[in-house]
Design a binder for these strands. Structure first.
Lengths: 147, 147
DNA sequence: GCAAGAGCGTTGCACCTGCAACGGTCGAAC
DNA sequence: GTTCGACCGTTGCAGGTGCAACGCTCTTGC
């Protein structure tokens, strides 16, 4: 009889860890700004400053197009970003932070850094090897087959 | 002006990694058995053999009660488990694998082990330190505060 | 025995997500 | 200039999720 120990199963451990980490951080912006994880990702990506298309975010952040599109719509409705049609290519929609959105990211960025430092502390202070392995695993799984 | 680099943000990296790892594994059972991640977790937890209540799974696996309840209902409908009321405490529902469910976990367990070995390989062969840190981080975030 | 409170699992509801399909726009070939 | 194909973003739809509230059952105290 198979006795499978879920607790020791790496995919499960990672899922639980990731959910806790995300929940721990999202509590910092969920209440204060009313945005979700998906919306946070879009805003964070826009913090670089230049206008970005939906497709670009879809490729850089790992979210599918509809998810980005809806997150952007919610952010626009909340006044954090603007959506304007690119006049040289009217298929593209340019997303851009408003002043309100900029203020939000300015407030959240240090909180994010601090939260990350908490995590690093929990790791024992040296996060280098851990991050390397996270990145290595992510790379190994990036494409799409194995089936 | 804040320039937040999402790619280097640990919570983001973990979320992406976890999603990829889960997707990579779920492809092994999604098509073959038509079950979701939540259902997989319930079945895996039931593989120990004894009947288990919804509440016990809710506590052990990190899923809230409604999620466990619905996953169990789907599994029952698919014929993988049975749900019976505990006669000594009629508030409790005992979940138990059917022969069909047992056959599924017997088939999936080696696949899960093999998949895990793939991940270990991608880590460079020595997964000990990585698992330690995953566990340590998970422990640090287990309770409920930071606010 | 009975009432109040706590525990367990389910259900309602609003929201989000994944996938496929769609309309609008651009570029290439003729 | 037209037509065909590709691309971009949005929308429909079915299904899953989180949270709160509910019904049923057990326990506790009287």
């Amino acid at each position: 009889m198979t006795d499978f120990n879920l607790d020791a199963f790496l995919p499960y451990q990672l899922a639980v860890l990731s959910a806790r980490v995300s929940a721990g951080f999202s509590r910092h912006y969920r209440k204060a700004y009313g945005i979700s994880v998906a919306e946070w990702r879009v805003v964070a990506h826009l913090s670089r400053g230049d206008a970005v298309s939906v497709r670009e975010i879809h490729e850089r952040v790992d979210m599918d197009k509809p998810k980005v599109s809806r997150a952007a719509s919610r952010l626009e409705e909340a006044g954090y970003i603007t959506k304007t049609v690119n006049e040289t290519d009217r298929r593209l929609v340019e997303l851009k932070l408003t002043d309100k959105g900029r203020a939000m990211i300015d407030a959240l960025a240090p909180i994010a850094k601090a939260y990350e430092q908490e995590l690093v502390g929990a790791l024992g202070g040296d996060d280098g090897p851990f991050r390397d392995q996270v990145r290595r695993l992510g790379e190994a799984l990036k494409p799409r087959q194995t089936d």
